[in-house]
């Protein structure tokens, strides 16, 4: 009787843990070697922070009372030449005066926390997401049209499609972005965002075109012959019969292309679009938390791409219904 041998899994799981642990220790030793001081506490403020409003003395006088109120303190100041004392509220942790101290006009007493603000990391993430999304959408449309041209009977359309695809696939995206921004962008007076989206769209379009062409050609000829034999036109056959089936097949590679695009979009930071990567670079110049910020930026890309992978996995399963 044949049976599936139940091999023990735990030695391999153990080995995996050991290797991961080894990597972590290696990383730790490496950072010790360069005397790197980790400052993870600095990272959260770049996602969102509370605006700080310095509070100053409205006039010269004496602090006559400090009374706590939650994590804030109320500082009461008696003016030298005056009548009514005035109360200023600041965060206790930022308190700069003591009871009985003399203050002159505009002396800082402490800081009051104001409204929550969105930090540069969140802003950069948002820019990355929407630029990728818009470029992806335009790129898919370009890719669909180019893919159809690529298999068209018309020689001109086919030639143009091949030329475009070869040009884009044969040159680095970074160079394309520079050309789009410095050459086309200057000639047409394009905004840097428009130039960035344009370059990314053309880039995705070329790769999508090849995916869509392969998808269409993977549908058996009998399908379009059956449709044509019923009197459907070439366009009706494409729309009702070939494309829906092709789309189902190309969904996984198309999704992969889109996920790549999110990562590739980091290159638009070279034309000063403040996406996630550019935000990271800007933050590092002021925070000095180089490692932490790059790790965080990497993690953010990872989160976005894995969420998307999951979403598409789910979508694929929905589409698999009629198989």
């Amino acid at each position: 009787m044949a049976f599936k041998r139940q091999s023990a899994q735990w030695p391999w799981q153990g080995l995996l843990v050991v290797i991961l642990l080894g990597l972590a220790i290696g990383l730790w030793i490496a950072t010790k070697q360069v005397h790197y001081e980790w400052r993870w506490a600095r990272v959260p403020q770049y996602f969102a922070y509370q605006e700080e409003e310095p509070q100053t003395a409205p006039f010269a006088g004496t602090v006559i009372k400090i009374s706590p109120a939650g994590d804030a303190s109320q500082v009461t100041i008696q003016p030298e030449s005056g009548v009514q004392p005035v109360t200023v509220t600041v965060k206790t942790a930022t308190l700069k005066v003591a009871d009985g101290a003399q203050v002159s006009e505009d002396d800082e007493i402490g800081v009051l926390r104001g409204d929550w603000r969105i930090g540069p990391l969140t802003q950069g993430l948002w820019v990355t997401i929407w630029i990728s999304f818009v470029s992806g959408l335009i790129g898919m449309i370009i890719g669909l049209i180019t893919g159809l041209c690529r298999i068209s009977k018309n020689l001109t359309l086919r030639g143009l499609a091949v030329l475009y695809i070869e040009l884009i696939r044969g040159t680095p995206l970074l160079v394309q972005i520079f050309i789009f921004y410095f050459f086309i962008g200057t000639v047409l007076h394009l905004d840097r965002i428009v130039a960035g989206i344009g370059a990314l769209s053309l880039f995705v379009g070329a790769y999508t075109a090849e995916i869509i062409r392969a998808g269409i050609q993977s549908i058996p000829k009998g399908q379009s012959e059956a449709a044509r034999s019923l009197g459907m036109s070439a366009a009706e056959t494409m729309i009702h019969i070939v494309l829906p089936q092709a789309f189902k097949r190309v969904l996984p590679p198309l999704a992969g292309q889109f996920i790549s695009l999110i990562k590739d979009s980091s290159l638009v930071s070279v034309i000063a679009i403040t996406d996630l990567t550019k935000s990271g670079r800007e933050i590092i110049t002021s925070s000095f938390a180089t490692f932490e910020i790059w790790f965080t930026v990497a993690l953010l890309y990872l989160v976005v791409t894995s969420v998307l992978s999951q979403l598409l996995f789910w979508l694929e399963r929905r589409f698999a219904r009629s198989d």
Partner: peptide, 16 residues
């Protein structure tokens, strides 16, 4: 072609 129906060896039904 509307007026001429055709049946194929491998059926060629639309699977979707």
């Amino acid at each position: 072609r509307r007026e001429v129906g055709m049946v194929f060896q491998h059926f060629n039904l639309f699977p979707h």
